[in-house]
Design a protein around this nucleic acid. Structure first.
Lengths: 225, 225
DNA sequence: CCGCGACTCCGCCCCTGGGAGGAGATCGCC
DNA sequence: GGCGATCTCCTCCCAGGGGCGGAGTCGCGG
C-alpha cells in the first residue's frame, strides 16, 4: 500500500528535490506535480492522491485557497486528500489560515528529510503533525484564549460592579438605555449612569465598543442570546 | 547544558521505567520525582527543572491543576518549567484542559522511548509538541470553528453587498462612522449610507445591534481582532 | 459615628448616529 | 441602448447617547 503524493510548488527545482527525497522511500510514490493552486486542485481531482505537499506562497491561487478547495471537498466526497503545508517562514497569518482551511500538517521548508518522510506517513494515516514552533504558537493562542472564557474577568472587567456588568450584558444585546431601564425596573437616567461608568472604567468610547468588549472578553458569547 | 527533568506519576514502577530511559541520555538528568500534584508543585519550586513529565491522572491534585500551577507561574516568574503531559488514553477533556492549563506538550504513554527523548529536547528549547492523534483533534476543532465563518451567510447576511459587509465588520470593531470613512478612504456620508443599508436589510435598529449581529452570525468572532 | 462604595435619580448640553430623499458614476446584463 | 445594482456623495432633521455636575439612599467596615 504505497502512499500517493502530489507536489505543489512554483519552483521546479524544489519539486525535484522533494521528489528525489520521496522516491527514495519504497512506500511513497510521487504521482504528480503542480506549479500553482489551480493546477493543484485539478491534479488532485484527476489523480486522487493520499497526501498533497503544498507550498503556501504561489501565484494564481495561493496555497491557502487551494488547501481549502482540496481539504474542504472531503466533506462531500469521502476520501479527501490530506494536505501537508510547507512554508519558508512561519508567518502567523498563513499558518492560521491554512489550518483553518483544513490542512493536516504544517512544516517549515528547512525540515530534515527524515522528518518530512515521517510526517507524510503520519498524515497518510489520517493523523496530523505540526512543526514544533507552530505547535507552540497554536498552544499559546489556545492558552491565551481560554483564561478569558473560564473566568470572564480580564482584569479590567473585574473593576465593574455587579450592576454595571448586568447593564453591560444588556448593552451587548443591542438594547437601548430605555429598554435596559424597563428590563431592570430603574429609570433611564440610572442606566445612563451605569453605562457611563462602564465606559470610563473600561476606557471605551461608546456602547458599541462596550458590546464588542463584552464579546471579546468572553463576558457574553455567540449563541448565548 | 543538561536538561533537568522531574517525573510526576503515582505509579513508582512507571517512574522507574522513565528514569531508566532518560538517564541513558547524556544530556538529560532526572533531578526529582513526585507521586501527586502537590508534591509536583513543591518539587518544581525547589528544584527548578526545565521539563516536567506529568501524568494526567493522579490522586490529591490532578495533573491538570498541577500543570496550571506550574505553567501558570511562568507569567510572573521568568523561567517556568515546561510541562509535558503523558496519558494512557487521549481523552478529550483532559487534553483540552491540560493544553488550556499551559502544557507544552502531550504524548500518549505508549510512545517509543526515542520519541519521548526527542520530545523532551524540543520542549526544553521552548517549542511544543503533540502526539499526532491529538494534533489531529486540535486541528479538527480549529477547522470546525471556521466553516461557520467561511459561509457567514445566515440567509439575511447574504443580502448585503460586499462593501456593506466590509462596513459591518468595522462597525463590529467599535469604529465610528468617521473612523470607518478614514479607513475606507470614502466620505462619512457614504459610510452612513452603507450603515443605513445594513440596518434596514438586516432589520436592525442601530449600530450596536449590528455589532451584536456580526458576532452572533459568525461574521466576526472573538479573538479575531 | 462617619466615611465610602454601590445604586439610584435629576437636568443640561453637545455631538454622533440614523432616516428621508435625491443624485451622479460605473458596471454588467438583457 | 436601457435597466438595475452597486458605490459614491450631498443636505436637512432630530432623537438618542454620553459627558458633566449634583444629589439622595442603603449597607458595610473602620
Amino acid at each position: 500500500m504505497t502512499i500517493r503524493v502530489i507536489l505543489v510548488d512554483d519552483q521546479p527545482l524544489l519539486r525535484t528535490g522533494f521528489r528525489m527525497i520521496l522516491e527514495a522511500e519504497p512506500d511513497i510514490a510521487v504521482v504528480g506535480e503542480a506549479a500553482d493552486g489551480e493546477q493543484a486542485v485539478e491534479q488532485v481531482r484527476a489523480l486522487q492522491p493520499d497526501v498533497v505537499l503544498m507550498d503556501i506562497r504561489m501565484p494564481r491561487m495561493d496555497g491557502v485557497e487551494a488547501t481549502r478547495r482540496i481539504a474542504g471537498s472531503g466533506r462531500d466526497g469521502e476520501n479527501a486528500a490530506r494536505v501537508l503545508v510547507l512554508t519558508t517562514f512561519d508567518l502567523d497569518e498563513y499558518v492560521v489560515e491554512a489550518l483553518r482551511a483544513g490542512a493536516s500538517g504544517f512544516l517549515l521548508k528547512d525540515v530534515p528529510a527524515d522528518d518530512l518522510v515521517a510526517a507524510i506517513r503520519v498524515i497518510a494515516e489520517g493523523e496530523a503533525l505540526l512543526a514544533p514552533s507552530i505547535t507552540r504558537r497554536l498552544l499559546d493562542m489556545y492558552a491565551a484564549r481560554l483564561p478569558s472564557a473560564e473566568d470572564p474577568t480580564p482584569d479590567t472587567l473585574a473593576m465593574l460592579t455587579e450592576r454595571e456588568v448586568e447593564v453591560l450584558r444588556l448593552v451587548a444585546r443591542g438594547m437601548s438605555n430605555a429598554e435596559i431601564a424597563a428590563e431592570l425596573y430603574v429609570s433611564e437616567t440610572t442606566v445612563k449612569t451605569h453605562v457611563g461608568h462602564v465606559l470610563t472604567k473600561l476606557g471605551l468610547r461608546d456602547r458599541v465598543q462596550a458590546a464588542v468588549y463584552a464579546y471579546e472578553s468572553g463576558l457574553v458569547r455567540p449563541g448565548a442570546i
